[in-house]
Amino acid sequence: MTYKLILNGKTLKGETTTEAVDAATAEKIFKQYANDNGVDGEWTYDDATKTFTVTE
């Protein structure tokens, strides 16, 4: 399945997608991606749209 991440960081904003077997796997990938890019904030997930959002 395709999952989407919306980044609302102070210095980085944008979107990315990943292919993952489930939401938990996608979350791990996205949290590593956000960490690698210096984004740390409040996480939400919308199962209907398979979208994670992180807001600093």
Rank of each mutant, 00 (worst) to 15 (best):
M1W: 13
M1G: 13
M1H: 14
T2Y: 13
T2D: 07
T2M: 11
T2H: 10
Y3H: 04
Y3W: 08
Y3L: 01
K4W: 09
K4V: 12
K4L: 09
K4R: 13
I6N: 04
I6S: 04
I6K: 06
I6E: 04
L7N: 02
N8T: 08
N8D: 09
G9V: 12
G9W: 05
K10E: 08
T11P: 04
T11N: 12
T11Q: 10
T11S: 12
T11Y: 14
T11R: 09
T11W: 15
T11F: 14
L12S: 07
L12P: 04
K13Q: 12
G14T: 14
G14A: 13
G14Y: 15
G14H: 11
T16S: 09
T16N: 05
T17P: 02
T17S: 12
T17E: 13
T17R: 08
T17Y: 15
T17Q: 12
T18Y: 08
T18K: 04
T18G: 03
T18V: 15
T18E: 04
E19W: 12
E19Y: 15
E19S: 10
A20R: 02
A20S: 06
A20L: 02
A20T: 05
A20K: 02
V21S: 13
V21G: 10
D22V: 03
D22L: 04
D22I: 03
D22E: 04
D22T: 05
A23R: 15
A23P: 10
A24K: 13
A24F: 10
A24T: 09
A24M: 12
A26F: 01
E27W: 11
E27Y: 15
E27F: 15
E27Q: 13
E27D: 05
E27A: 10
E27I: 08
I29K: 07
I29F: 12
I29N: 05
I29Q: 07
F30R: 00
F30P: 00
K31T: 05
K31S: 04
K31G: 04
K31D: 03
K31W: 08
Q32T: 09
Q32Y: 06
Y33A: 03
Y33D: 01
A34K: 01
A34T: 06
A34P: 00
A34V: 09
A34F: 03
N35T: 13
N35S: 15
N35A: 14
N35H: 15
N35Y: 15
N35W: 14
D36E: 11
D36T: 09
N37G: 05
G38N: 10
G38Y: 07
G38L: 06
V39N: 03
V39T: 03
D40Q: 14
D40P: 04
G41E: 01
G41P: 01
G41K: 02
G41M: 03
G41Y: 03
E42L: 12
E42W: 12
W43E: 00
W43T: 01
W43K: 00
W43I: 03
T44D: 07
T44M: 12
T44K: 10
Y45A: 01
Y45M: 02
Y45K: 01
Y45N: 00
Y45T: 01
D46S: 06
D46R: 04
A48T: 12
A48H: 13
A48R: 07
A48Q: 10
A48W: 11
T49I: 08
T49A: 06
K50I: 03
K50V: 04
K50L: 12
K50G: 06
T51A: 04
T51K: 03
F52S: 00
F52I: 01
F52R: 00
T53F: 09
T53G: 03
T53Y: 13
V54Y: 03
V54M: 05
V54S: 02
V54T: 04
T55R: 06
T55N: 09
T55S: 07
T55P: 01
E56H: 07
E56N: 05
